[in-house]
């Protein structure tokens, strides 16, 4: 009887984890709609004001392009570190996971710092959040640029904080690779972090390269 009770609770636990993951995917779906609005607005702006976008790309220069490319590599690397951390906890190696998650938090932090450097540089060139003036070569670009990238940056900051929480919990004994799969918290955070990475993949191409 005790074995049967244990078996049922394990099934319930698995169902609970699946529900949590599904909830995370629904959250990601809602975030997809939000980012799509910004991406759609930028795409229409890019379509109707190609010259303004070209001017900004010129203002950004090769240094700016390399800086953003490097930043993209940082985020891709953080996504890799995240999935390697999940791999470690699935093997029961909690310390290994913590090391990878420190890398995730570090890379995310550097990404945000470099985004600040990029914003400062663009602001110096005259690309501002509000209307730059009817005769400005960048007319209208600032709002369409800063809104999606800053919204994304806010997600990175939230992700870094969430990552630190996961690390703190792991250091206090949470998560392990036991059959109960109580590493679901790591997996769900991973879904969020990878989604933030996917959004950047789209924003990077759309805003900086096209």
């Amino acid at each position: 009887m005790a074995e049967l009770t244990h078996h049922l609770s394990a099934e319930q636990e698995t169902a609970s984890i699946e529900n949590q993951k599904f909830a995370m995917w629904l959250y990601i779906a809602s975030e997809t709609i939000l980012f799509s609005i910004f991406i759609g607005a930028y795409a229409v702006f890019r379509h109707s004001q190609p010259e303004a976008v070209k001017e900004v790309h010129h203002a950004l220069g090769l240094f700016g392009t390399l800086l953003v490319t490097f930043n993209s590599f940082l985020l891709l690397a953080s996504s890799w570190a995240m999935v390697m951390g999940l791999r470690e906890i699935k093997r029961g190696n909690r310390q290994g996971m913590i090391r990878w998650l420190w890398a995730v938090a570090g890379l995310g932090t550097v990404f945000v710092l470099l985004q600040y450097v990029e914003y400062s540089r663009l602001a110096e060139e005259g690309v501002t959040l509000y209307f730059e003036g009817a005769d400005s070569a960048f007319a209208g670009f600032g709002m369409h640029f800063y809104t999606p990238t800053a919204f994304h940056g806010a997600h990175v900051i939230a992700g870094v904080l969430w990552c630190l929480l996961v690390i703190w919990k792991a250091r206090n004994g949470a998560y392990d690779g036991a059959p109960g799969r109580n590493h679901a918290g790591v997996e769900i955070f991973g879904l969020y972090w990878h989604f933030v990475d996917v959004v950047w993949v789209v924003l990077f191409t759309l805003i900086y390269l096209v």
Binding site: K21, W25, I28, A29, S36, G190, H194, D197
Partner: peptide
């Protein structure tokens, strides 16, 4: 994006319900 979603987010191996939940807004967008 496909590589990250299918392999890093395990959508290739996970429940179809997750795939539907994610792809519906993507296609609409």
């Amino acid at each position: 994006a496909f590589l990250v979603v299918s392999i890093y987010m395990h959508l290739k191996d996970d429940s179809r319900a997750y795939l539907v939940a994610f792809l519906t807004p993507v296609i609409m967008a």
